[in-house]
Write a protein that binds this DNA or RNA. Structure first.
Lengths: 208, 208
DNA sequence: CTCGTATCGATACACTCGTATCAAAAGGAG
DNA sequence: CTCCTTTTGATACGAGTGTATCGATACGAG
């Protein structure tokens, strides 16, 4: 075969170009042509790598989800790791638009999210992510319960569902902020969420 | 002037057509032509009523926000009204996709929300809504504090921010549900939110 | 009634869209 | 080197886009 190139690497390069356009101008400005130009490729090259625009979008969605999941998988809650409260705080804080990259990510997320409303394939992919997040949260909340970290009167399963919608809310709220706005409100929301759900210090607090 | 017609009424009729299309196929399928066809009008009529597509979209956004605000304004928390916990529960429950109309509304909301990420005019309109919601919540939370309804250790201002992102999260989460899915998870999230933020019964519970 | 004007619906225009096609190029196999 | 296959970039095509234009239409004023 002539012209040895790393196909997967280039697919990721194209997906990154799509993410930049979606963050800057929205999904409506994403076309084969605009993406190819942003990636520095010709239309034909993008067509061969992805075949159809739908497959390009699907790949870009999965690529983004993989990035987010990889980041979150490094936040380990449990024995030998973080307390539940600290883990929760880190997850939520990590989503805040603290830099341009995070803001761009939130914008892309909002665009994909809206598309999931009318594209069953997108909705399915999001549902899979949801299932994994639910499982991880269930485990973390279970451990928090054992450690006495949960505020009294909380049903663990219901709490998991609350945290799931809370993550969406925090992440997406970045989208409506005017540029350069302060993050104080969102930081306050994170602090309030942690405060409402946990009892400070968990077992240690109850020991001391 | 010939052809007496109620202009504002027809603008709302056209906006409703836009909402239906956006809920069914997304904002990308909204064009002057598709909206005109859905509304049973000609392209020229829609053009005369709105001039430009951007103005049509802006009107449709404001129209939707007005509907939601009108609904919420009927939920009155405070002296002579509902308890904070009950009001919060009603607001959050009202957003759930309990019927097709609510589901459609959530889908339209997600589309507009995503557009606000890249359209400053949309973002401004959402920011105004945010300011009004923040004021209403601040008042409700203040009253809840006086009534002893708030769970201990809550900063009222931070709690307001938490509730704001929670509303977004609950509402938007409808979008990723497969059709016909159960609402149990979202109802659980609402219950968990109310439980985490308030102490059951408020003053009454502390008296009894 | 007639007239004048505000509204209408159709069409035109200059794009952009996703996709298909296809000649030119490019590099490993022999 | 010569082939031969894969990859590339350009172009073609039909459809759909926002908007402008402009006769036909329909009504209220006189």
């Amino acid at each position: 075969m002539p012209r040895y190139v790393d196909k997967e690497e280039r697919r990721r390069h194209v997906a990154a170009a799509l993410h930049r356009i979606a963050a800057r101008e929205g999904l409506e400005s994403v076309s084969i042509r605009t993406v190819a130009a942003e990636a520095g490729l010709s239309v034909g090259a993008v067509q061969r790598d992805f075949g159809t625009k739908d497959e390009l979008l699907r790949f870009a969605l999965r690529e983004m989800l993989a990035n987010v999941e990889r980041r979150f998988s490094e936040i380990r809650v449990g024995p030998g790791g973080l307390s539940f409260a600290e883990g929760l705080r880190r997850v939520l804080t990590d989503l805040l638009p603290t830099d341009d990259e995070r803001l761009a990510e939130a914008r892309v997320w909002s665009a994909f999210y809206a598309r999931a409303a009318v594209d069953a394939g997108f909705a399915d992919t999001l549902a899979e992510l949801d299932a994994r997040a639910r499982a991880a949260l269930r485990s973390a909340v279970g451990w928090a319960g054992e450690q006495g970290e949960l505020a009294p009167g909380q049903d663990p399963d219901a709490l998991v569902e609350l945290l799931l919608v809370l993550v969406d809310g925090i992440w997406l709220s970045a989208v409506r902020q005017p540029p350069g706005a302060s993050l104080d409100a969102q930081r306050a929301a994170v602090a309030a969420a942690v405060a409402a759900v946990t009892v400070e210090g968990g077992r240690e607090a109850r020991r001391g």
